[in-house]
Design a protein around this nucleic acid. Structure first.
Lengths: 120, 120
DNA sequence: GGCTTATATAATCTGATGCTTATATGGTGG
DNA sequence: CCACCATATAAGCATCAGATTATATAAGCC
């Protein structure tokens, strides 16, 4: 199953959005999605399975529950495909990237903690 | 139809790839896709319609033919969604973007050439 | 052990999507 | 005008993804 097929479903996109905020139990995800899309628990579970089986999410046990977390590897692939078109909407982006790649290795940030505030 | 649904189809992705190399006539696209996917001309035409109607492609007349070109607007939307996850595969990217946005307006004067440490 | 909770799987049904064949539209040239 | 390209649309059909209900698995608790 291609990554884009996985992302083709709105429920799965929503699940990924939720997971992007942090690890969540299946039940929590189910509650949110149930409310928003009006679908059943098994339906959500099946979507989670698709995410799992295609590498978009990982699971771990926590007693009774299953805690899901996002795994961005396939998203990166999607991004890679998209980037081929990026020049069309951000003509300057390519130049910036080049510059960045250079600056990045020069600067070698030590970035342990995040002392910078990205948004306020 | 959501942008991700449009991209969910491999034929349409391929068409976009081809269009990304430059304007092409429907017939040319049809030939390539026919060879690769073994589908008929109407099938391709219908995919082109989906691309058109969802803003992924534009058409113009050239005598007998219809020349298609890619329109990246919806791809940008997709990219915008993806970017919310970008920090997961490129932890430094967010910082770089922030820095760039700032550096871009600061640098403006250009000439110093040492943009080495914006520190932080 | 037996009840309850949390989650996954199985089986089945349904509707949307994409394919096909057939046909329409519209431009070009004799 | 008529024949002929190039392309789009129409109509019908098949397949598949996603939904549902019912049930299985597995952990926690008394």
């Amino acid at each position: 199953m291609h990554a884009f097929d996985v992302l083709g479903d709105p429920v799965r996109r929503r699940l990924l959005e939720l997971l992007n905020e942090g690890e969540r139990a299946s039940g929590e995800l189910t509650e949110v999605v149930r409310a928003e899309f009006g679908i059943s628990q098994p339906a959500v579970s099946q979507h989670l399975r698709v995410l799992r089986e295609n590498g978009f999410a990982t699971v771990r046990r926590d007693g009774n529950r299953r805690l899901y977390a996002v795994d961005a590897a396939p998203l990166r692939d999607v991004d890679a495909w998209l980037r081929r078109f990026a020049a069309r909407w951000e003509p300057h982006l390519m130049a910036l990237e080049t510059e960045l790649a250079r600056g990045d290795r020069e600067r070698r940030t030590s970035g342990d903690g995040e002392e910078g505030r990205h948004s306020g």
